[in-house]
């Protein structure tokens, strides 16, 4: 068999499936804003890239978050797409909408020794006075598949630990937010976030960052299921970057 056989076999797909793909279901993201996210961030960066970057594009890792941000310097307006896609085999989208935001802070904590093409930073956005957003993202130019980001909506004036977010109508509470630091250099290398939901299910979302090119491979490395969270497929399938 070769790709030619495959192409012609695809040409025999059922008519109704092909016709279904003709539709143009561009999303009404306003309607989806009721599904809201909340929460946290992480850190890191690459100094020159942060200052000069005019375009950031982060692709999901671990089927957890997909985020796009277009913009540049502090003070720029951004349009961020929150698109949290759950497990690879699930078509379940817990949030997907665009939010225009105003960049009020573009924070670089320290040089993590990133290579050229890496961009790491924490960006804080003001959704025109309504919400404060804290966002981490990175842009590993050499491999989109290794990119990772977490974007959460933190209601203005709240501490991260008070953050609540909602999945499928169920509120999840962030009960712990723990930045980790590299003992050797004092660089931030990770963030551990523990969420608690409904009093029965508890789970941990752990993200870790290291320095240099290994950073990307460590991000969103493990999610520990403390109890049954089978309903939350987003936390079940974490890719192995080894």
């Amino acid at each position: 068999m070769n790709n030619n056989d495959l192409i012609f076999a695809i040409g025999r797909i059922d008519d109704e499936l092909i016709e279904a793909s003709e539709q143009n279901p561009k999303r009404n993201f306003k309607a989806k804003t009721s599904l809201l996210i909340a929460a946290v961030l992480i850190i890191v960066f690459s100094v020159t890239a942060v200052a000069a970057a005019s375009f950031f594009n982060t692709v999901n890792s671990g089927n957890l978050v997909f985020m796009e941000a277009v913009g540049g310097y502090s003070g720029d307006s951004y349009q961020i797409k929150f698109d949290i896609d759950v497990a690879e085999d699930s078509d379940h989208m817990i949030n997907d909408y665009y939010v225009p935001m105003y960049l009020i802070e573009n924070e670089a904590w320290t040089d993590c020794g990133g290579e050229a093409g890496e961009t790491y930073n924490v960006m804080t956005f003001d959704n025109y006075g309504e919400n404060l957003f804290a966002i981490f993202f990175q842009y590993p130019a050499w491999n989109y598949d290794n990119g990772a980001s977490i974007a959460y909506n933190v209601p203005a004036g709240t501490e991260v630990s008070e953050t609540v977010f909602e999945i499928d109508g169920e509120e999840l509470y962030c009960i712990e937010f723990q930045p980790c630091f590299d003992g050797y250099r004092g660089d931030p290398f990770g963030t551990r976030v523990v969420f608690w939901s409904d009093g029965y299910n508890m789970f941990v979302l752990e993200t870790r960052l290291n320095t240099g090119s290994e950073v990307v491979r460590e991000i969103i490395r493990s999610v520990e299921k403390v109890n049954d969270i089978s309903d939350y497929a987003v936390y079940k399938e974490i890719p192995d970057y080894e």
């Binding site: 076999a9 695809i10 025999r12 059922d14 499936l17 078509d91």
Partner: peptide, 16 residues
Amino acid sequence: LEKSINCFTKNLPEKE
């Protein structure tokens, strides 16, 4: 092969 591809396609989530 055609049947198999059709089956594969049907079983994909709608978006994919």
